[in-house]
Write a protein that binds this DNA or RNA. Sequence first.
DNA 1: CCTTGACTTCAAGTTCACTTCAACTTGAAG
DNA 2: CTTCAAGTTGAAGTGAACTTGAAGTCAAGG
Lengths: 158, 158
Amino acid sequence: MDKHDLLTVGAVAQRSGFAASALRYYEAQGLIFADRNAGGQRRFERSVLRRLAFIRAAANVGLTLEEIRTELDMLPGGRTPTKADWQRITSHWRGRLDEQIAALEKLRDGLDSCIGCGCLSLQRCSISNPDDRAGNGSEAEPGAAFLPRLLRRPQVPR
Amino acid sequence: MDKHDLLTVGAVAQRSGFAASALRYYEAQGLIFADRNAGGQRRFERSVLRRLAFIRAAANVGLTLEEIRTELDMLPGGRTPTKADWQRITSHWRGRLDEQIAALEKLRDGLDSCIGCGCLSLQRCSISNPDDRAGNGSEAEPGAAFLPRLLRRPQVPR
DNA sequence: CCTTGACTTCAAGTTCACTTCAACTTGAAG
DNA sequence: CTTCAAGTTGAAGTGAACTTGAAGTCAAGG
């Protein structure tokens, strides 16, 4: 009863925690691959679970699907990442995580130093203006946004 | 030459760093308020700048506009936050930030402990499954998502 | 053979936070 | 008075990451 151990979308969905629709979407986007059986239904190899774990990890780190696809494409032959691949890729992520953490800590510390001050001044408050960019009447970068881009990436396309 | 010191959208945009279109949007959403002059143009009181600083800070912390509006509505009479308001609100944010930071650190540390292991197993790898929830064949929470909801909120509506 | 549930495709819808557009009006300077 | 930047509205568009719906096909149990 083992046809080289292939999995249906439903099975992959259940085992990975992704919705079946998400899996189809990922396949359409070229992030994962599936064979088809006689009737045209998807049959996934088990390695797709590993790939999905990779995708989830990358998404957790804040990569877009496009970035993830690029990263996956850099693995020659679509193979499961080797030790070396993994090291290269995660060192990249590590920097990203460190930046995110630093940005959040800056925000938090600004919060601490501001509790009770009630100022919330556009110019001086480190929470509303974490980068301490000027915005005082006269000149300032025109339309400068004070947001740390790292956080809330989905916002602020400009 | 001072009509109680009212500001046009353009002026507010320049001083706050928000685009004029964003200001109109915020007004439509009830996050900020404006009087109108004889010709129907918006005239903002200067206190709007403080309110906008608040909005930006809240957005930095990761609140949605809806949540921000709720928070602002809890300030009686639409007043500028007092020391007490500010303390209550920021203590709320602080928890949020602490959670976000903790989640990221967990991810990062998992990354460290995983560099070189090459496993990336759905069940065991702390990067792809930071909460260490089971997902092993037999039972598991059906369709459980392993993502820390805190991160990447924009994704995963489910 | 029949039913049922899982699967298929493709198009369109959803959410968030805005931005852009078209068509028009207002206000300040010269 | 002319000019033109800056303002107004409502509707529609954007992008990411999916989800939902419609209309139909496939697979397994009884």
